[in-house]
């Protein structure tokens, strides 16, 4: 940003001011401060970069992908990377692996986004209501949470998918149903530390009702730790989706879901390592990116840090 000697403050100065002049200004300044903290964390920026890259790839898949992800070529099956313009080789039906990975990023993002909205949403609602109201409500909601937690995650997801029928949407639903209890636990724990604080007492003294206190005063303080947890969980979600795909209960062939691709490549893993390895690397990279970003977000969003 160039420093000029005009009387009007530059955008940077405007954002870094200690004395915001409007609601919008204050919010923008707070956001900018958060961005500066995040930017100073190199690893988090690498994670963010990878995820933005994935987003672009998913958005422009038809233009980027060199070939049709579904076009089969049985003559050129299991071609090693680099042959005939197949940069990452071909799979057992002669489909270009790179193109399949590029199209598969759409499915991955779809699953991740839906789970990232549903699971923490349900968890936040259950956890904060349970923590704030307490008593019987708390006991009942937390025992339900315990029941969900007691099942191994993949087994429960399997049961749901088996009952609902195979497919991506049902896989998303099943993963969300198994993923919300930890969020509810976190939200409840946060709520318990917040509910007796003076600032909650203070707003009670203004005659605020529980609904307002939960949504306007408790949620903003819980959401940051949930967001961090979501980004750390995303790797697990991708793997769970892959696991369901691997068992044939997630995305159905021929759709190029990364987990399903690994499942397919498993049969040739000794002779044609690239068929399973390439989607494995993709899952690994994206999981790592989410983890790195989550670590950085924790520094930015922790309310105890105060953002300054």
């Amino acid at each position: 940003m160039s420093q000029t000697d005009t009387r009007k403050p530059t955008l940077r100065e405007w954002l870094l001011t200690d004395t915001p002049t409007s609601r919008f200004h204050a919010r923008m300044a707070a956001l900018y401060n958060g961005w500066l903290t995040l930017r100073s964390n190199t690893m988090a920026m690498i994670g963010l970069g990878i995820l933005l890259f994935l987003l672009l790839i998913a958005a422009f898949a038809p233009w980027i992908a060199p070939m049709d992800p579904l076009a089969q070529d049985l003559g050129g099956r299991l071609a090693p990377p680099g042959t005939d313009g197949h940069i990452l080789g071909t799979d057992s039906l002669g489909r270009d692996i790179l193109s399949r990975l590029i199209y598969g990023s759409r499915i991955t993002l779809y699953i991740v986004t839906l789970v990232a909205i549903i699971a923490p949403g349900v968890g936040l609602l259950v956890g904060t209501v349970s923590g704030y109201i307490g008593g019987w409500t708390d006991a009942i909601l937390m025992r339900i949470t315990d029941i969900f937690l007691a099942f191994p995650r993949l087994v429960l997801a399997l049961a749901f998918v088996a009952a609902l029928g195979a497919g991506i949407e049902n896989a998303v639903l099943a993963i969300s149903i198994t993923a919300w209890p930890p969020y509810a636990r976190i939200a409840r724990a946060e709520t318990l530390t917040i509910r007796n604080s003076d600032y909650i007492s203070a707003v009670k003294l203004q005659g605020a009702r529980p609904l307002r206190i939960i949504t306007k005063h408790i949620w903003p303080l819980c959401i940051s730790s949930l967001i961090v947890r979501v980004t750390l969980d995303m790797a697990g979600v991708i793997l769970a989706a892959a696991g369901l795909g691997f068992l044939g209960l997630g995305a159905q062939p021929p759709s190029p879901e990364w987990g399903a691709m690994i499942a397919e490549g498993r049969r040739f893993i000794l002779d044609s390592w690239w068929v399973a390895t390439m989607p494995g690397l993709a899952i690994f990279t994206v999981s790592l990116a989410f983890n790195l970003l989550g670590d950085g977000l924790r520094d930015v969003l922790d309310p105890k840090e105060g953002g300054s």
């Binding site: 609601r23 204050a26 604080s197 003076d198 600032y199 007492s201 203070a202 707003v203 203004q206 005659g207 605020a208 306007k216 005063h217 903003p220 303080l221 309310p303 105890k304 105060g306």
Partner: peptide, 25 residues
């Protein structure tokens, strides 16, 4: 309240604190 460090919501600006109070009343 006794402790001004604990009696203000850490995520609410002064404007929000006073605005909400006035609105509630």
């Amino acid at each position: 309240f006794q402790d001004p460090y604990a009696s203000l919501h850490p995520r609410h600006s002064v404007d929000q604190v006073l605005g909400e109070t006035l609105k509630l009343h």
